[in-house]
């Protein structure tokens, strides 16, 4: 469980990035942190594995304040997948890349082998075991980066803008993977401004703007609220926009899923005819 209590953070440059964040992320939760670039999303999640320490307030993970632990200690439980895989890939083979963290955490060689196998299978990159990560495509590099974090099986997985630079198909694959990860009881925290991605995954949503939390709730509730969406400088999902473009027909309009929208519309047409 991650507890954030009145967290303030100011960068050495004087930029006040977080202004009093209070938040609890329960075990097994699927949370999307949304807001425009510069809203403080990444700054916030960098506190979850101790990369940044609070200027004021506290972040407590499973009862331990991040001030009292090293990044390596926290990282054992909180995995962080960075936005750009190129910021971490450096090994000669995919296998070594995935084993890197395991070595740092002091796993035994047999355990390392098993876990690497498991992670490569999980992300469907087994055939690249001996390949250099630099030879792979963008989508594949992303999966190597993901495997290299999932390999040590952290309880919490944080993904910073996972969909950036991915095409539609890769995005969908990644989305299904993330949803599945959460279904297997992992706590998943996604930082994103990809509205359609969130609309299709239906997580809990936290909206941020100017270093503060604007709203919290489930995706449907938050993303269909025009006022909130405007306040956080994102846009509502296309489906929501289509329905809100209709006059008041007595139908439910807080819909974010295309299939739900069609069934509502079909019902309406049936009633009419």
């Amino acid at each position: 469980m991650i507890e954030v209590r009145d967290l303030h953070f100011t960068y050495p440059t004087g930029v006040e990035a977080l202004r009093g964040i209070n938040l609890t992320v329960r075990d097994g939760e699927f949370l999307a942190i949304m807001g425009q670039n510069g809203a403080g999303k990444t700054t916030l999640v960098k506190h979850f594995n101790g990369l940044l320490k609070p200027t004021a307030g506290e972040v407590v993970i499973d009862g331990v304040s991040t001030r009292d632990a090293s990044v390596a200690q926290i990282a054992r439980n909180v995995g962080f997948v960075f936005q750009n895989p190129d910021h971490q890939l450096f090994c000669e083979t995919v296998e070594e890349e995935v084993a890197f963290a395991l070595r740092n955490f002091g796993f035994k060689e047999t355990a390392i082998k098993n876990r690497v196998d498991w992670a490569l299978n999980l992300l469907d990159i087994k055939r690249y075991r001996e390949t250099s990560p630099f030879m792979l495509s963008g989508g594949e590099r992303k999966r190597v980066a993901l495997a290299s974090v999932l390999a040590w099986d952290p309880k919490v997985v944080i993904l910073d803008e996972p969909t950036i630079g991915q095409d539609h198909r890769q995005k969908e694959k990644l989305r299904q993977f993330i949803v599945q990860l959460n279904a297997q009881k992992k706590t998943v925290i996604v930082v994103t401004h990809d509205v359609e991605f969130v609309a299709e995954s239906n997580p809990q949503v936290m909206l941020m703007s100017g270093g503060e939390i604007v709203a919290e709730g489930d995706a449907r509730e938050i993303l269909t609220d025009q006022k909130l969406v405007a306040q956080a400088s994102i846009v509502s999902p296309e489906i929501t926009q289509i329905l809100s473009g209709l006059p008041d027909l007595g139908i439910q309009k807080n819909v974010i899923d295309v299939h739900e929208a069609t069934s509502i519309l079909l019902d309406l047409l049936e009633v009419a005819s």
Partner: peptide, 15 residues
């Protein structure tokens, strides 16, 4: 092919 067809078009298709 996996083109991210706009949701408006997708809705049309499902209907």
């Amino acid at each position: 092919i996996g083109v991210g067809v706009p949701k408006a078009t997708r809705l049309y298709q499902i209907l």
